[in-house]
Amino acid sequence: MNKLPFILLFFLFPYSAYAGKVAPNVVIVLNESARADSFGCYGSENKTPVLDAIAAKGVYFRFVWSSMDSKTSEQMLRSGHYPFRTEVKTDSFKSLGYHSSTIEQAIKGEAKPPFLAIHILKGSSVKALDNFVEPLAKLKDTLLIISSLTGSGESNSAVSVPMVISGPPVLNPGRECWDLINITDFSPTLAEIVGRDIDRKHDGKSFLPSLQDSDDPFQKRNWIYTQSGGSWMIRDWENVLYSDGNFTRISEDNLSTEKVKKTDKIAPHRKERLEMLVNRLRDKS
């Protein structure tokens, strides 16, 4: 039995998934705002054939949190940190060794690989986004991440965004992923893909295991956090805790929430756990 290479691979994988491989090109396109379920692949009536096709050969995520305002979201994305860490202003993508590129260069094939192109599309039209990514979907050996800076609506719905990803690291394509993702997680993910260490104080966590359909919860998040100005929110799979003390239950569609009443049957201590997690997070700052 030729098991040795397999075993070696197994041990190396989590630490540097792409060690020895050529790092893929990366294109990140973000709408300024889009409701988390507004793509066709999420069951929406919007016609988004390109996004759906990307989802079909990639992964679409159900639980992704950005921030309430697009400026804070972009800051979280770039820095890989939560907003309360005011001292951190660096661009965490810089140290990853990518050649930065524009979308146009990427499409024309003028960018030097491996390149990283991040583009923010003004507006909130899903149709426009779908059209915009059409040429990108044809790029080869490219990790394509399509998401949004903000959601739309109130509270949980305002910070929940869609996210569709296709490209080289994705295994078992065509699935919906229920793992919890923060917008701070992009740069740690790329860092893991290229095998680089990143700042230890980073608030993000690589979601490469989610792209590769890992079943191990220890490689993934079990809560996500967001903030805008002085108000914050933290959630796990079922509940959201707000800075004003509100504690809600997330409905089946993941976007609407209802306040947990004393008579509701929910697992005990869920609120306490989220409280402790957020205290711990903010104490460290």
């Binding site: 919860p217 079990n222 799979w237 697992a267 005990p268 402790m276």
Partner: peptide, 20 residues
């Protein structure tokens, strides 16, 4: 005992265990 994110002795979400 195995992860900092699980808090003793609260009822931690089952998703944190499934698969591990």
């Amino acid at each position: 005992k195995y992860t900092d994110d699980a808090i003793y002795p609260l009822r931690n979400p089952k998703q944190m265990y499934a698969g591990s």
